[in-house]
Structures are given as C-alpha cells and as structure tokens.
Amino acid sequence: MLTSSTSSAIPPPYPSLSHPANPRNLHHCSKSINRRHLLTSLAISTTSFFLESPNILPAPVADARGLFQMPPFRLTNRYFLVRAGESEFESLGIINTNPVAKTSMDSGLSGEGKKQTARAALSLKAMGACEDSCWIWPSITQRAYQAAEIIASVNGVNRSHIVPEYSFLDARGLGAYEGKNLDSIAEVYASDNISSSIKPPPIDDGTPNESVADVFVRVTQLMSILETQYSGDTVIIVSPDSDNLTILQAGLVGLDLRRHRDLSFGPGEVRFVDASSIPTYKKPASAVYKCSNPPSCN
C-alpha cells in the first residue's frame, strides 16, 4: 500500500492547479493542453474502438414520430369516437356552446341523454374497447364528463384512466347562434359547405365563433398529444357535440372538411376509427367540390 510520502513522490501526469496563486502553473497549463487536438484524438480513438469491435453496436435510436399531420401516415393507437348523450339544453331545443358554462350542471346530460350514453357504454363493451385496458378522454364539459363516468363504470375502467381535456374538445362555438333554436344550426352547415374558413357571426357574451378550420386545428392538436403520450393503447374520445368528431374523422381519412356534416354523430353514437378506409358518405359533385389536397380544400 502506498503511504502518503510515497504518493507525494509520484509526479502528477498534468500540471497541478491546486495552487492558483502561482500564475506560472496556470500559464503552463493553458499552453500544454490543446483542446482541439484533445477532442480530435478522442473522436479517432472512439471510432477505432467500434471498428475494431464489430460485436459492440451503439444503442438503437428511437423512431421519431415527428409532427402529427392530417391525414396521418399511420396511427400508433386505436381510437373510439363517442358523442355524449343529449344534454339538458338539447332536450329543450336550445343551442348552448358557451365555454363559460361548460361545467355547469345545467350543461349536463338529460334523462334521455343518460340512457343514450348507457347504450354507448354497452356498445363499447360489446366491441371489446377496454378488454386490455383503455384511456377515456372526455371534454371537461359537464355532459361529456358525465358520459365518461358512465362508460368507465360499465366497462370496469378505473377513474384514474379518465383524463379530462380542458379546451381542445370544447363544443364548437357558434357565436351569435348561441341560445337560438337548434334548427337554426342548418344555416351554419350551409356556410360550412361553401368554405371551411367561414365563421358564424360573432357575439359579445363570451361564446367563440369557430369555423370548421378552427375546430380542425384543435382536434389536430389533440391527436398530436394522444399519439405522443400513448403507444399501442386504446383511447376513447368523448365529445360534447358532433362537430368535433365529424371534423376529426374527416381529417383522419382525408375527406373534404366542407363535407364533415355528412359524417354526423347522433347523441350517444359510438364509432371506431378505421383509418384504412374512407367511410360511406354523400359524395359531392366533383365540379363543385373538387379537392386536390384534402383536407385543405378551400
């Protein structure tokens, strides 16, 4: 064993910096070490090591998913789209899309809406949606979150697998149509058929006036999060309205966004996302709705 006296007798392999008060040591160190030469030597020695050791390979690099685009090249998860059952406002025939009141009990499921959602939950169970575990992503909107709880209960899903979404799944804001009769929404869809960028007239009560393109941005952001956060999982998306889902599905399969209404979801409807095929829908006249770059077809 080396004693302290023996140890001190061994000269250090590099200039000592233990005495910074001596400026000669620092000057000698800076002159003796050539950083560029040192880095080059390390690179050459590392390369030689791997070339001379063919059985030692560098760790594989994870596949990069990149920015999520619509329509996607592939989906890493499987998805079920669910529209929440009828809301209290819908039962009264009133348009209600103001996010200010989205967590209010008045925005919850009606009696009929609860029955519709229970049937949706049973449909998901029959489809085996949660046999190997699943994640339920509802809008924080009262009716959508109530629907998620019913789906979880029927399918034996732990509440920890309910992930509330706070903005990307808000009901489409219909601006000045807020509070009007549900039948008047036909005017909004007539504008959607002309261009996905047309917004409903604005209003000053806090209700946004969103075009199809606006909603498309939101649901694309949602899918980007889901495709990044999970891999090989099942995700059940629960929306308070139909437009979120029709625009999302149109984007996923590359359909003209102006025709999203043709994929309309009824209250409590469940749909499995099959990105390998385009669902049946009303094909528009090509002379009017020619689109060379779906879903951007304005």
Rank of each mutant, 00 (worst) to 15 (best):
F216C: 06
K180E: 11
P72S: 03
L38H: 14
L92C: 11
D214F: 00
E112N: 14
I278N: 12
L248H: 07
V215I: 07
L169C: 08
P164M: 01
D183I: 04
I44A: 09
N244L: 01
Q221K: 13
P138N: 02
A250M: 00
P138F: 00
N96G: 01
V270C: 04
A287D: 15
T207L: 05
A148Q: 02
V219Q: 10
A59I: 03
P15H: 07
V288Q: 14
A84E: 00
L38Y: 13
T234K: 05
P267R: 13
S231K: 09
S224A: 06
I56G: 06
P12G: 06
Y14K: 15
E210A: 03
T76M: 06
P267F: 02
P13I: 10
D106Y: 02
L245R: 04
P60L: 07
A176R: 10
M223Y: 01
L174R: 13
S196Y: 01
I10K: 13
L109C: 01
G268V: 06
A84M: 00
I278P: 12
K125C: 04
F49T: 08
L39C: 11
E88M: 09
H19Y: 15
P208G: 06
P200F: 11
T246P: 06
R36E: 15
A118F: 02
H161A: 12
D262Y: 04
Y79P: 00
V188K: 02
S104C: 07
K199P: 00
D205Q: 09
R78D: 06
S167Q: 04
G251F: 06
R24S: 15
S107N: 14
G66I: 07
I162H: 01
L182I: 05
W135I: 05
A126T: 14
T207H: 05
L252M: 10
T228A: 02
G85M: 05
S239E: 04
N22L: 11
E86T: 09
C291D: 10
V215Q: 07
T117C: 09
I10P: 14
G108V: 04
G156S: 08
L226M: 08
R36Y: 11
Y14F: 15
T117M: 08
I136Y: 02
D106I: 06
Y289M: 12
L257A: 15
A43R: 14
V154D: 08
W135L: 07
A186H: 01
S133F: 01
H28G: 10
E165F: 00
Y189C: 02
D183F: 02
M105V: 12
Q69R: 13
R172F: 06
S53Q: 12
W137I: 02
I95S: 05
A9T: 09
R261A: 11
R218Q: 08
L39Y: 14
L42T: 10
T280Y: 11
K282I: 09
L248Q: 05
S123W: 07
G254S: 04
D170C: 03
L42I: 14
S153A: 09
